[in-house]
């Protein structure tokens, strides 16, 4: 289980996170929604210690990770697979080498076993034929799928998805959503996804939390979020430019 307690983070005096509190239960998929630039990716990077909080705590399986040094964080980080927004595949390596990277770095498996597992992961994301290509030769969707294969190949306990469907066409985005669900069912992982794609959020989430103004504004199941009367959440999920309340909708608006 991951617990986030009263998390604060500022950059150059601008407060991005102002006391975030939530928990991710084992086996669930929690989706954080919120506006662009609202601190979703910053929040995600705190979970595996890529960013350090100014105040507050991140507790992974009972361990407060803030006081840990970079080397002490290594075993914690090995519990995570992270799918970065742009894929963050290593330019100098082929798709195969990228996916094999976390396994080779563990230095526990022999090369034939690594090859077997990498090919298995690439088959799941339908990229086996592109295994010898460099990331620059791939389309945006292929890069995301390759990055997903890399995030899952070492069988992590937690997977973090940073905008998994951003920049993809609806069909490809739905394919990525299916892969996320498939990964959850096959590996029984706990997942956190940050996105502003509501179609994706409704499809993959067990719970949805909305990050607004540096805090968690609302949490609920996809059905609860869809049915909410909270004006801020409604504005976001409806994609309207002005905040509308349930009562005022159709008559006047509150800005």
């Amino acid at each position: 289980m991951i617990q986030i307690q009263d998390l604060h983070k500022s950059f150059d005096g601008a407060e991005v996170l102002r006391g975030v509190d939530f928990e991710i239960h084992d086996g669930e998929t929690l989706v954080i929604i919120g506006r662009s630039g609202g601190g979703k990716s910053v929040l995600l990077k705190h979970l595996c210690g890529l960013l350090r909080p100014d105040a507050g705590r991140v507790i992974v399986d009972g361990v407060d990770i803030d006081p840990l040094s970079e080397s002490e964080l290594t075993p914690i980080r090995k519990k995570f697979g992270v799918l970065f927004q742009g894929g963050a595949l290593f330019d100098s390596m082929t798709v195969f080498e990228n996916v094999a990277f976390p396994l080779r770095e563990e230095r526990k498996l022999e090369e034939p076993e690594i090859t077997r597992r990498v090919e298995q992961a690439l088959t799941v994301v339908d990229l086996l034929k592109a295994k010898d290509k460099k990331p620059a030769e791939l389309s945006g969707g292929m890069r995301k799928r390759a990055a997903l294969a890399r995030a899952c190949v070492a069988n992590p306990k937690y997977i973090l998805y940073d905008e998994p469907t951003t920049g993809l066409d609806p069909v490809l985005a739905d394919h990525i959503n299916d892969l996320v669900l498939q990964t959850r069912d096959q590996l029984h992982v706990t997942s956190l996804a940050v996105t502003h794609d509501m179609t994706s959020a409704y499809k993959i989430a067990d719970r949805i939390a909305m990050l607004h103004d540096g805090r968690i504004h609302a949490v609920g199941t996809p059905k609860e979020i869809q049915a909410t009367t909270d004006p801020i959440v409604r504005q976001f999920i409806m994609g309207t430019a002005e905040i509308q309340t349930e009562v005022q909708r159709g008559t006047e608006t509150v800005s």
């Binding site: 990077k45 595996c48 890529l50 980080r77 970065f84 290593f90 990277f101």
Partner: peptide, 8 residues
Amino acid sequence: DSMRSMGT
């Protein structure tokens, strides 16, 4: 960041 997230 991706490298660090994999413990390297």
